[in-house]
Every structure is written in structure tokens, then in C-alpha cells.
Design a protein around this nucleic acid. Structure first.
Lengths: 365, 365
DNA sequence: TGGGATATCTGCAACGTTGTAGAAACGCTC
DNA sequence: GAGCGTTTCTACAACGTTGCAGATATCCCA
């Protein structure tokens, strides 16, 4: 609360408190008695530097603790080494798993991941598409959930190199991007067939999301449901009579709520194919509460093979996408685009496995 | 394999293929017929710009899709708006939860999170301490696991503004950092007391990690164990006779393995306090396999209140750290330091709750 | 001994932005 | 209509780095 200001006192070099700028090439150069450029050459392993000079420079670097400033490098070279990963939310185990896979794989390639989450909704996703408020990273890995297909289809080209992951993107993608997906429909078909082959006939799919405003959120739900229906048809059942249980979202709690509703609609259900593992975990908790035995009375299948799956009660049969392969493929494509490749959009399918655990054990009968 | 080089052909402006640089202030200025600085003034809401000029500039900005380049801003101003979050691994639900909390809170403050994971070991943690290879963000939030206390104590000051979270940091911290912690010991005391008050007497703590090379990894385990032991003593039991079950790490699988070992050592166990929820989930799965009923035969308590906890079988009693409070507190401190504050290290304790669920239900007796 | 290649080092300019200082135009008062 | 303050705009420099084009010095071979 010191109101008065000393207007005329000439402050001799106001001692800048903390923001003591980190050492620069200039500082190193001064100590090593060489030009700035030579220091730069040493840092960048330019071969034509005498060993003696190199040693002197390296010593100076160590002495002042020099580290290159990413901002200046980026300004000069146009590349930041940053990759933006835009996911719905880390509170879904599936996404935190793939986030880790991407971080590891990026670190392995000398790149750093900037994480952005879009659980806020379509507004947040649109921000991602438009390239954020500031030009920051070299490219984006983007898993949209709520994005209107038409919106994406309208774009002529993405604002920066982009690789989409997830589901339900339009056939016709803008220029400047690629798309890596997982065969949801096929995986769901395979999972459902497993139950049908066991003789179970009163199956339900849990995980459809009612579409609001024409938005199709979690459209992986749609694909997985389609695979479910196709499997029914392939086994001679009538898909139009199938039980499709809607849920509010894809968290554990939604699975629990959905299970309550389902048990009311179809008390004799003997197999539930869930949209993901989190839903399945909620389902298991409610089946237990209602005294249904798994797998004796009801079989349950999840999707994602989250780290939880082997430890649920009983351990959960689930579709396991190859997250490592996903990360590798995506980064290959993205870095190629960052490097200047500008061919037409490419679509790549990555593999999955059906991991069979006790929640779908064969009936002793 | 085109070996020959055309030395003398003067290439007239080689058409740079993709890396078409994004529009700059200069481009906008040209279109709007004003100086670069005026565009900058408009972008930064400098008040002394005529409305007509402002409109013209805004139109030009929209026309070319101008977005400021973070790198140039950082170079000029010295601040990037980036905050580095260094965590062990997102595959622990606890860490992915707090990562999300930090991302949200940072987004709310107009800052972006760079995520770095250090599961690779002490080497990776040392890199964080040294400020990484390049100067990138404005500050770090760092949850070390394996860092030698002495190593940190030896530092005079951190290489950039830092807030530590987690456990077992030295009393004497370097300059330039703060420390936000959770009262692990107290929480564990309270959790253990809950079981003792129910009359359970053959308790075990599961989650100690054998220390290798003098390193004290997961030292939260130590604190939580200490609280456990203190509770025993406070209830008139002999802490030196307590059962402490070691585990290899703190994943679900380690909980499962630890439970197997524990059941062999102390078959009559009637209460297990686990180092975290993931361990508890593994424990529950093995108790079930061995036919032990929870909570009738054995009560189980976890730590972290991960999203799994309400959905385990039975739902898990657990200590719930206030992640939102953690994120808020940490960012407050960090941003204050980034802003130039350079006072001595501060230590802040954030609150927790004991969430009682069925895994510790009272015995009907 | 000359000529060309090779090795080692340097200065300059530019990347896009913003702080500073100041020029120019305007409006007001006496 | 001179003087002064306010509004509006601009030029310049600098942040730290690297590509480019050279300047020397050194070496090898004819």
C-alpha cells in the first residue's frame, strides 16, 4: 500500500528479481572465446569443428548450464518438436492408456506431447480442428467424439498435419490428414459370435447413446452395435427383435444404470455385450447386486482391455485393441506429414484381439 | 539414386512444397494497410486504436486465418504459457486422474500442459530436475518417485519454478520450489483405526516396497505404513509384531501376488490396509479366488479413491485425496513463482476424506 | 610451386513478435 | 492560434537461434 511514486529518481538498473534469463549461446561463446555460430555448431554436432575447440565449448556449456531455447529454435526452423494429443478425457481408462502409449512412443522419437482434453464438448473439438488459438505444435493427434461429420467434410484441408483416431469419421477427409482406426464392427461381431456359439440366445447390447441434435457421440457405439446385430443375423436370429440398451454416457456409473434398466426390460438376459470395459464394470456390479451369477446366468463382454479387465469379478472377456501398434502407426503417419509429405488422406486399420476370460466361461452344461 | 548434381543451374525460388508457413502479422498488416505494430496492438487489445482501423484489421485477420505464433511470443516475452507435468505413469489410475485435474485447471487459467512421464526410472527423474534438454515451459509440476532425497537436498535452486507433489521429499528444499503434500500418515492412521474399532485384530499392511540401492521408491508406502503402525500402537497392539506385506510394485497384479503371499503367511488375517486402490483391486480378486468373503472374513481398505473404487466387488473403502484442491493449490503456487515470486520454499498440506464403502462394512455380529 | 579440394571458423540476416519511444493528428482551453 | 494533453499510429530494436555465404588456413597431388 505504498501509494507515492518517486518520479524523478533514476533507478540504476532495476534488479530484475527472478526471471533471470537462462544462459544463451552468446554467454557460452564469450567464455569459450569463439563465435556464437561455433557454439551452435558444436551443439548441433557439425563435423567441422576442431577437437580442441569442441572441448573448450563443451566445457563452457557445462559451466553455465546452457540448454537450447526451444522457442528460438522453433522460430528459426519452423519446427517445435511438439505434438498435440487431443483426447476426450483421461478419466476413461482407455484414453489414459493410449495417452501413455503416445507419450512413450513420442519420447522415443525425441518429441514431446502436449495434452489437450475435449470433454468440454463440441466447442472444444472445434477449437482443435481450427488449430487452437496459437500456433504451437507441429501436428495433432485427434480423437473426436462429438464432431459433426459434415463439419469435417466441409473442410478443405486441416489447419496443420493431423492424424485422426477413433470412429465414425467421414469417408471423404480433408487434405493434410490421415486416419487410423480399429475394426470395431468386426471385433464386435466376433465377440457376439463367441456368446452365440455357446448357445446363449437372449443377448443384449448395452452402450447405444441416444443422439441429440443430430450429433452422433461415441459413434464407436454405433459400429459396435452394428457388429452385434450382424452376428445375430449370421446366427439366424432376427436383428430387429434384438435388445439394445441405451446409456447416458460410457462411464462405469452409466453401465450400472443401464444394467438396472436392462434387467427390468429383459429379465431373462443371458449375455450382455458392452460398449466398453467401464460400462461392463458397472454392469457386473449390478448383476451381482441382483444375484445374477456371471458367467453361469449371464455372460458379459467388454471392449478396450483396460488394466481393470483381468481383475474384475469375474475377470472380464474383452476386445483388446493393440495400443502399441496404434501409437506407432499414428506417429509414423504424422511425422511423415510433418516432414512435408502432402499426399491424399490415408486410412489405416490396426489390429485387435479377443481376450477370453471368465466372464464368458463355457457353461458346465 | 540421382547422383549427379547440377551445380550451376540457378534454381528460381524452389517451390517449398507443404511447409507453407502460417500467416503472420506482416501478412495481416499488408491487407489491412496498417503497420505490423498496429495489428499487434489490435490482437493484444491495446485501447488506442480507432474503431474503423480495428475493424479493418480484424477483417484481415479473419480473412487469412491469422493466429499468433507461440514461439515468437515466447522468444520476445520470455514466457510460453506451457507448464510441464512430470508424473510416473498414466497407467496408474491415480496419476491419470490427477493429470486430468491439472489439465483442466491449467486450461482454465489459459495455460497448456506438457506431459512427461518418468516410469523409465531415476534417470528420467534426474532429467526433469535438470530442466530437460531444452528450455521449453515456464515451470514444472513434478511428482518424483525414486529421487534420492540427498540429491534434491544438494541442489541450491531448481532449474525453473517447480512445485513438487507426492511424498518423502527432504525437509530442506532447494530455492525456487514449493511442495504440496497429502497427510498420508494421518490418513492411514484413520483408515486403520476404522478396522480396529470394528474389533478386527489380525490386520496386515500390504504395500511396502523393498528398498534397493538405498533408493526409497513409492515412499508414500512408508508413510502409509507408519500410520498403520501408529494406529496399532494407539489401540494397544504391538507394532513390532505387525504383518507388513511387501510387494514388487503398486499395480493390480502386484496386489494379487502380494495377497497370495500374505494368505500364506497369515491365513487368519481379518483386515488388509493396502497402499493404493490398484493393489486393493488385486487383493480382492485373490481373496475371492481363495473363498474369503469381503467384508465378512476380511476387510479391505484402499487409497486414492480411483473411479474403480465404487465398482469393485464389494465396493472399496478408500482414502480420497482432494484432487481438485491439489490441482488448484499447486497451480496457484506455481504461477506465483512463474510471475516472479522468489521467496523460500513453501509446504502446503491438502485435505483428504475417508470414504467408507462395503469392503469394510460392520460385521453383523 | 601452384592449384584445387578440404577443414575450420566467422559475420550477417532472418524467423515473428512486442516494448519503447516518438511522430503526427486531433481536440480543447485561454 | 499558441500551447497542451490526448488519441492514433509507426519505426526500430531485440529476444536466441540457425542457414548461408564466405574468409582463412591446411593439405594433397601433380
Amino acid at each position: 500500500m505504498h501509494a507515492g511514486r518517486c518520479k524523478n529518481l533514476p533507478m540504476p538498473t532495476p534488479p530484475r528479481p527472478l526471471p533471470q534469463r537462462p544462459p544463451t549461446l552468446r554467454d557460452v561463446a564469450e567464455i569459450a572465446q569463439v563465435s556464437i555460430k561455433t557454439v551452435s555448431n558444436v551443439v548441433n554436432d557439425y563435423p567441422y569443428v576442431k577437437q580442441a575447440t569442441r572441448d573448450r565449448v563443451l566445457a563452457a556449456i557445462a559451466q553455465v548450464g546452457y540448454r537450447p531455447q526451444a522457442a528460438a529454435q522453433q522460430l528459426r526452423t519452423g519446427a517445435s518438436g511438439l505434438i498435440t494429443l487431443a483426447l476426450p478425457s483421461l478419466t476413461f481408462t482407455y484414453y489414459s492408456d493410449i495417452a501413455q502409449a503416445f507419450i512413450d512412443e513420442a519420447q522415443r522419437r525425441g518429441r514431446t506431447v502436449v495434452l489437450h482434453t475435449t470433454s468440454a464438448g463440441p466447442e472444444a473439438e472445434r477449437t482443435v480442428l481450427q488449430g487452437f488459438e496459437r500456433v504451437l505444435g507441429d501436428g495433432v493427434i485427434f480423437n473426436p467424439l462429438q464432431l459433426w461429420e459434415e463439419e469435417l467434410a466441409r473442410m478443405e484441408r486441416t489447419s496443420q498435419p493431423t492424424v485422426f483416431i477413433g470412429e465414425h469419421l467421414p469417408e471423404q477427409l480433408p487434405r493434410g490428414c490421415d486416419y487410423v482406426k480399429i475394426d470395431n464392427e468386426g471385433a464386435s461381431f466376433e465377440a457376439t459370435s463367441l456368446l452365440l456359439d455357446q448357445g446363449r440366445r437372449r443377448l443384449a447390447f448395452l452402450g447405444a447413446i441416444p443422439s441429440a441434435h443430430g450429433v452422433q457421440p461415441h459413434s464407436s457405439g454405433t459400429l459396435r452395435r452394428d457388429g452385434f446385430l450382424r452376428a445375430l443375423a449370421a446366427h439366424g436370429l432376427d436383428p430387429s427383435a434384438a435388445t439394445i440398451q441405451e446409456v447416458g454416457d460410457w462411464h462405469r456409473q452409466d453401465g450400472a444404470d443401464g444394467a438396472e434398466a436392462l434387467l427390468e426390460r429383459l429379465p431373462e438376459v443371458d449375455g450382455i455385450v458392452c460398449g466398453n470395459d467401464d460400462l461392463a464394470i458397472g454392469v457386473l456390479s449390478r448383476l451381482r447386486r441382483h444375484g445374477r451369477r456371471v458367467p453361469e446366468d449371464v455372460a458379459v463382454i467388454g471392449y478396450d482391455d483396460t488394466p481393470d479387465a483381468p481383475f474384475t469379478s469375474p475377470p472380464l472377456t474383452t476386445v483388446s485393441p493393440d495400443k502399441q501398434a496404434l501409437a506407432t502407426t499414428v506417429l509414423d503417419l504424422l511425422i511423415e506429414r510433418i516432414g512435408g509429405y502432402d499426399g491424399p488422406p490415408r486410412t489405416v486399420m490396426t489390429p485387435y484381439d479377443l481376450v477370453v476370460r471368465e466372464s464368458t466361461a463355457l457353461l458346465p452344461a
